[in-house]
Amino acid sequence: GIPATNLSRVAGLEKQLAIELKVKQGAENMIQTYSNGSTKDRKLLLTAQQMLQDSKTKIDIIRMQLRRALQ
């Protein structure tokens, strides 16, 4: 079985993952909103794209940590 310490770690990672998935969803929504907007929305679009990139990276890292914890 999986050690108890790993189980609480997994629960924490799953919570983090859920949050990051919401951030990713929000960033994707912002990108959709701003991509057909005016030029003043360009900065917001770039910010949203950066957020999305960061979020995807975090999600990958969390998933990797989850896999390790579940081994």
Rank of each mutant, 00 (worst) to 15 (best):
G1V: 12
G1T: 11
G1Y: 06
I2M: 10
I2E: 08
I2V: 12
P3A: 08
P3G: 10
P3V: 07
P3I: 06
P3D: 11
A4I: 13
A4E: 13
A4P: 08
A4Q: 13
T5R: 06
T5D: 12
T5L: 12
T5Y: 09
T5K: 09
T5Q: 10
N6L: 10
N6Y: 03
N6E: 11
N6C: 15
N6T: 06
L7A: 14
L7E: 13
L7C: 15
S8G: 09
S8L: 09
S8D: 13
S8Y: 05
S8P: 06
R9T: 12
R9Y: 15
R9A: 08
R9S: 10
R9L: 14
V10F: 03
V10D: 01
V10H: 02
A11Q: 10
A11S: 06
A11T: 07
G12C: 15
G12M: 15
G12V: 15
G12N: 14
G12L: 15
L13R: 00
L13D: 00
L13H: 01
L13Y: 03
L13P: 00
L13E: 00
L13Q: 00
E14T: 13
E14A: 14
E14D: 02
E14Q: 15
E14F: 15
E14I: 15
E14P: 01
E14L: 15
K15L: 10
K15G: 03
Q16D: 04
Q16P: 00
Q16C: 13
Q16W: 06
Q16R: 10
Q16A: 12
Q16L: 11
Q16H: 03
Q16Y: 04
Q16G: 02
L17R: 00
L17A: 00
L17W: 02
L17H: 01
A18N: 06
A18H: 05
A18R: 09
A18G: 04
A18Q: 14
I19Y: 10
I19Q: 10
I19A: 13
I19G: 04
I19D: 11
I19V: 08
E20T: 05
E20F: 11
E20N: 03
E20H: 07
E20Q: 14
L21S: 02
L21G: 02
L21H: 02
L21W: 05
L21P: 00
L21V: 04
K22V: 06
K22S: 06
K22D: 04
K22W: 06
K22Y: 04
K22A: 10
V23K: 13
V23L: 09
V23C: 09
K24A: 08
K24N: 02
K24M: 13
K24P: 00
K24S: 05
Q25I: 07
Q25W: 07
Q25E: 12
Q25C: 10
G26A: 13
G26M: 15
G26D: 15
G26F: 15
A27N: 02
A27W: 15
A27L: 14
A27P: 00
A27G: 01
A27H: 06
A27K: 01
E28T: 03
E28N: 03
E28G: 01
E28D: 02
E28A: 04
E28P: 00
N29Y: 11
N29T: 10
N29V: 11
N29P: 00
N29E: 14
N29R: 12
N29Q: 14
M30E: 03
M30R: 03
M30I: 06
M30S: 03
M30W: 05
M30A: 07
I31R: 01
I31V: 08
I31D: 00
I31G: 01
Q32M: 09
Q32E: 12
Q32N: 10
Q32W: 10
Q32V: 10
T33H: 12
T33I: 15
T33D: 13
T33N: 11
T33M: 15
Y34P: 01
Y34R: 02
Y34G: 02
S35C: 15
S35L: 13
S35P: 02
S35E: 10
S35Y: 13
S35V: 09
S35H: 09
S35R: 10
N36P: 04
N36K: 10
N36R: 07
G37Y: 01
G37E: 08
G37P: 08
G37A: 07
S38Q: 09
S38W: 04
S38V: 09
S38K: 09
T39I: 08
T39D: 11
T39N: 07
T39R: 05
T39A: 10
K40Y: 13
K40S: 10
K40W: 06
K40L: 09
D41I: 02
D41V: 03
D41G: 03
D41N: 07
D41Y: 05
D41Q: 04
R42A: 14
R42F: 13
R42Y: 14
K43C: 14
K43D: 11
K43V: 12
K43Y: 07
K43R: 09
L44R: 07
L44I: 05
L44C: 11
L44Q: 07
L44T: 03
L44N: 06
L45F: 06
L46E: 13
L46S: 05
L46Y: 08
L46D: 05
L46R: 10
L46C: 11
T47G: 07
T47N: 12
T47E: 14
T47F: 13
T47L: 14
T47D: 10
T47W: 13
T47A: 14
T47P: 02
A48I: 04
A48V: 03
A48L: 12
A48R: 00
A48H: 03
Q49S: 03
Q49P: 00
Q49G: 02
Q49M: 11
Q50D: 03
Q50T: 06
M51F: 04
M51P: 00
L52A: 02
L52M: 03
L52I: 03
L52H: 02
L52V: 03
L52W: 08
L52P: 00
L52T: 01
Q53C: 10
Q53Y: 07
D54A: 12
S55R: 01
S55C: 13
S55A: 13
S55Q: 05
K56R: 07
K56D: 04
K56Y: 04
T57I: 14
T57R: 15
T57S: 08
T57W: 08
K58N: 04
K58H: 03
I59H: 00
I59Q: 00
I59T: 01
D60S: 14
D60H: 14
D60C: 15
D60A: 15
D60R: 14
D60P: 01
D60Y: 14
D60Q: 13
I61L: 11
I61H: 10
I61T: 08
I62G: 00
I62F: 02
I62A: 01
I62H: 01
I62V: 02
I62P: 00
I62L: 12
I62T: 01
R63L: 12
R63N: 06
R63K: 08
R63E: 06
R63S: 05
R63F: 08
M64V: 06
M64T: 13
M64P: 13
M64E: 12
M64D: 12
Q65Y: 06
Q65L: 15
Q65R: 06
Q65A: 11
Q65G: 02
Q65F: 05
Q65W: 07
L66P: 00
L66T: 01
L66F: 01
L66N: 00
L66E: 00
R67C: 13
R67H: 09
R67F: 12
R67P: 01
R67Q: 08
R67D: 06
R68M: 13
R68T: 09
R68N: 09
A69E: 08
A69L: 15
A69W: 04
A69R: 02
L70M: 08
L70E: 04
L70A: 06
Q71Y: 06
Q71M: 11
Q71G: 08
Q71W: 04
Q71K: 07
